[in-house]
Amino acid sequence: MHEASLMSHLIQTIEAIAQEQNATKILAVKVRLGALSHFSPEHFTYHFVIASRHTLMEGARLEIETSDDLTDPIAQDVVLESLDMEINEALQS
């Protein structure tokens, strides 16, 4: 259940950023997996592919960093590090 909540939050965050930036496509997503996030890179990739279906991030390249620091304040989290997006320049002000 923890993984589903983290993935849902991540997808919502990416969608909000994409909308704010007038993105037409998410090309790449870079995340850091906390030591206690319950995700391996493979497990995260599997869930991301499913969660991103029919969204702007479908097919995005994933860059995944992992942490093994159990004392890190974000050890239970998945942290969005960066996004690479195609932007609709016509909508930029």
Rank of each mutant, 00 (worst) to 15 (best):
R53H: 11
I74R: 12
A35S: 15
Q92A: 10
P41C: 05
V29E: 03
G59R: 08
Q19M: 10
R61Q: 14
A35H: 08
V29G: 05
A60R: 06
T24C: 09
M1Y: 06
I50F: 12
L70D: 07
T66F: 01
Q92Y: 09
E20C: 04
D72E: 12
Q19E: 14
G34S: 11
A18T: 08
A4R: 12
T13P: 00
G59I: 09
Q12V: 03
D77Q: 14
I14L: 08
V49R: 14
H9P: 00
P73K: 06
M85A: 14
A90W: 07
S8G: 15
Q76S: 11
T45V: 03
L27T: 05
R32W: 01
D68Q: 13
V49G: 00
R32M: 12
V31H: 06
S37D: 09
S5Q: 07
L36Y: 08
V29R: 08
V29N: 02
L80Y: 06
D68F: 00
F48S: 00
E63N: 04
A18I: 07
M85S: 04
A28E: 15
E65H: 11
I26P: 09
M1C: 01
H9K: 13
S40L: 11
G59H: 02
S67V: 09
S5D: 04
L10W: 11
A51F: 03
V49C: 05
S52T: 13
M1T: 08
F39P: 10
